[in-house]
């Protein structure tokens, strides 16, 4: 008993080490979406550059990305070329133009290319609020039945696609090939 007691500080120390190492490997800024596993919240938003509007049901049928972007968002410019690449591979990407000027958004797409199947305009950010968007860029994965499966906050690049997003597309009808 007495000899066990002598090791008590060591045991306490090791426990503390385990706790701290675990703490270091966690990302405190990672915030899972509150909407995971739920259907996309209802919306009725105008399509950018057109006089039609879209509802949540219109985006069902196949897994897709919903990319939240704006012309005021610098990181959106950074991820834009990679989104074009993904679109080329056949990935369906819906754009959510978040709290932006539609005129500027159209110019942006003209200048940089348009990776989006279509973009809806959320000028006052109310749909963004329903979805739990707190900045741009954010990218959501919805499955064929319109259920939110994943959210990535920040720039989408090859690593993010391969590790986090691609798995949701492999099972679907349009594999797209994640080479």
């Amino acid at each position: 008993m007495q000899s066990l007691k002598r090791f008590l500080p060591l045991v306490a120390f090791l426990l503390l080490v385990v706790l701290l190492v675990r703490g270091l490997s966690l990302d405190p800024t990672e915030l899972p979406s509150a909407r995971l596993g739920d259907s996309l919240p209802d919306f009725n938003l105008p399509v950018l550059g057109e006089s039609v509007s879209r509802q949540a049901e219109d985006w069902q049928g196949e897994p897709a990305l919903i990319n939240v972007w704006a012309t005021w968002c610098f990181s959106c410019r950074v991820e834009h070329p990679y989104l074009l690449e993904l679109a080329q591979k056949g990935v369906t990407i819906y754009g959510l133009n978040y709290k932006d000027d539609p005129e500027k958004a159209l110019v942006w797409l003209d200048d940089l290319g348009n990776p989006y199947t279509e973009t809806v305009v959320d000028k006052d950010g109310l749909f963004g609020l329903d979805l739990g968007v707190y900045g741009a860029p954010e990218t959501y994965v919805i499955d064929a039945s319109g259920v939110v499966r994943h959210r990535h906050v920040g720039v989408v690049n090859e690593q993010v696609w391969n590790e986090q997003l691609a798995p949701y597309f492999e099972a679907g009808p349009m594999a797209g090939g994640s080479d």
């Binding site: 899972p32 509150a34 909407r35 609020l129 979805l131």
Partner: peptide, 8 residues
């Protein structure tokens, strides 16, 4: 707000 942004 919790519905949208979680317990966070």
């Amino acid at each position: 707000l919790v519905d949208r942004y979680g317990e966070f």
